[in-house]
Write a protein that binds this DNA or RNA. Structure first.
Length: 280
DNA sequence: GCCACTGTTAGCAT
DNA sequence: CATGCTAACAGTGG
């Protein structure tokens, strides 16, 4: 998401919205065509990310913004107006200064687009529930966010109300780097463990962004470029392959409904928990 | 064809 | 409140 936000910011900043087209009204939430129409003539001031949301700031009609969530399969592409509308294209935006349109595609239609009233640089009210950005959290704050909780570490890392922006791939990768089993209850983690998780989180996210993200399947940024971080995944998608550290076979289990990859040797559970899982 | 799986999370049950 | 499960959708691969 960070990569997409940067890409859109670079491409769109300063451009004037000239037209839009809605092919699938269902992806617009709480947003009618009238409200969208107010965007026309506005200038794109910024494109920002908060958690997994993208916000396009404009100066249209009292600072309207477009808020996006791509969920699993949302994508942006730039296409010339004469190019055919590819399958699953739900929305298009044209600009005065460039020939290309920004188009939004989403196979599964889980994602959404919403036109929001902005007040200064604040994010819209509906993002208030999001936890802090992972790269902004210090050691004490991180410990404070997790202290007193009983859930397993991976489900808390994925909980956007606790920390905003960590998805399934990066949760698996950062836990491998921290050598923490995804099933381990946070209540059993030492301060040292937690700090290793926090540092690993920073390292994995920074490196992923530096490599333009993880393009699994056909995912690309808005320029159509693929990220390369997937080449460096240690566990995600490597079920049955040897651990790059110890050679043990990477396993895949289900943790809070999500596929989870880990090395049973590098990310050992305390024996007492292993027993419980075997029995239960 | 059927089943399991998918870069997410809202909404509901416990 | 905190936590866990499922559905929303469409496609892919075994």
């Amino acid at each position: 998401m960070e990569v997409i936000a940067r890409c859109l910011k670079a491409r769109l900043s300063g451009l004037t919205v000239s037209a839009f087209r809605v092919l699938c009204p269902a992806v617009l939430r709480n947003t009618d065509i009238i409200r969208l129409g107010r965007l026309k003539g506005g200038t794109v001031r910024d494109v920002r990310r908060r958690g997994k949301h993208l916000l396009m700031d404009t100066d249209a009609d009292g600072n309207l913004g477009l808020l996006f969530h791509l969920k699993m399969t949302g994508r942006f592409v730039f296409r010339r107006p004469d190019q055919p509308w590819e399958k699953h294209t739900h929305f298009g935006l044209s600009f005065l200064e460039i020939g290309h349109q920004l188009r939004y595609l989403d196979v599964r239609k889980f994602g959404f687009i919403r036109c929001v009233e902005l007040h200064g640089r604040s994010f819209p009210e509906e993002l208030k529930e999001l936890g802090p950005e992972p790269l902004d959290i210090g050691a004490a704050e991180f410990a404070g966010l997790l202290r007193g909780r009983k859930a397993v570490i991976k489900s808390l890392l994925l909980d956007q109300k606790i920390i905003a922006g960590i998805g399934n791939i990066y949760a698996d990768e950062l836990l491998f780097r921290a050598r923490i089993n995804p099933l381990l209850s946070v209540s059993l983690l030492s301060d040292g463990d937690l700090e290793r998780v926090r540092i690993s989180m920073r390292q994995v996210l920074r490196e992923a962004v530096a490599r333009n993200g993880s393009s699994i399947r056909d995912f690309t940024d808005a320029e159509g470029r693929r990220g390369t971080f997937q080449r460096f995944h240690c566990v995600y998608g490597r079920e049955g392959c040897p651990c790059i550290v110890c050679g043990r076979t990477i396993e895949r289990i289900r943790v809070s409904g999500r596929s989870s990859h880990y090395c049973p040797l590098c990310q050992k559970l305390p024996p007492i928990i292993s027993e419980k899982i075997k029995i239960g």
